[in-house]
Amino acid sequence: MEKRALFSNKLLPYLLIFPQLAITLIFFYWPASQAVWQSFLLEDAFGLSSEFVGFENYRLLFQQPEYYRAMVTTAVFSSAVAILSLSCALLLASQADKNLKAGHAIKTLLIWPYAVAPAIAGVLWIFMFHPTLGTLARPIKGAGVDWNPMLNANHAMLLLILSATWKQISYNFLFFLAGLQAIPKSVIEAAAIDGSGPIRRFWTIIFPLLSPTTFFLIVVNIVYVFFDTFGIIDAVTGGGPAGRTTTLVYKVYADGRLGGDLGGSAAQSVILMIIVIALTAVQFRFVERKVQY
């Protein structure tokens, strides 16, 4: 049933939604429209004037092999982080859901990484895995691996995936735990009596019942990896070595801030925006249809 509030005053409902609308307008629509406008402009080398060039920035962008590489990097990075952080969080949450004695302490500890700022998380990880300084790099090297995330692009990517995953697990864990606790205990018990073992029970009962949570987290995680991992990338690899860990959002920053190509950077952010909107729309349309009940 739809819940409707009835207002006798015609102005009041508009006043009530005004703050939210104002925030969205000032902090999203305004900068977004500026980015769209900027993407059609070309600035001179000294930043003194700009001229309207239509889709020139976009045309140039799609001629760059680096841009396609950033797309692939983003795809690899985001799917790896989403899959890893979701599955680790689900595993941890399903264990924490059992009645453990230290359950409360464990839950609290698991939530902490979320409170660490991305840049600081990045610094932590680079200190652990720095090829010469890293405390954990030493045993890896001792095991005969020529570990060097500063020079080896695969190592750098691995390090990024791990640090971004580590930070996101807490968030996913919280939601999965809440989702698990919302499943009626008697349903699980009924399945146990119905002869379903713990693993089969998980896949046939618990996982389908968690699917609304999982769906929500997939959307949130994709957006997280696309945008919020900027701090980690900047601190850990700075997009290197040789631009091999430059994701789409990092390239926006690198080209616009460091390269001074404001028009090209704006064009990239417009494309990025379209990609995320499209991804979310696709997820809502197709994945949600399979979401149970």
Partner: peptide
């Protein structure tokens, strides 16, 4: 429980919603 050859009807029915 599965090996006891019993079946149980719960107060809240405990049907599998999906």
């Amino acid at each position: 429980p599965a090996e006891r050859d019993i079946a149980m009807v719960f107060q809240n029915y405990a049907l599998y919603p999906h």
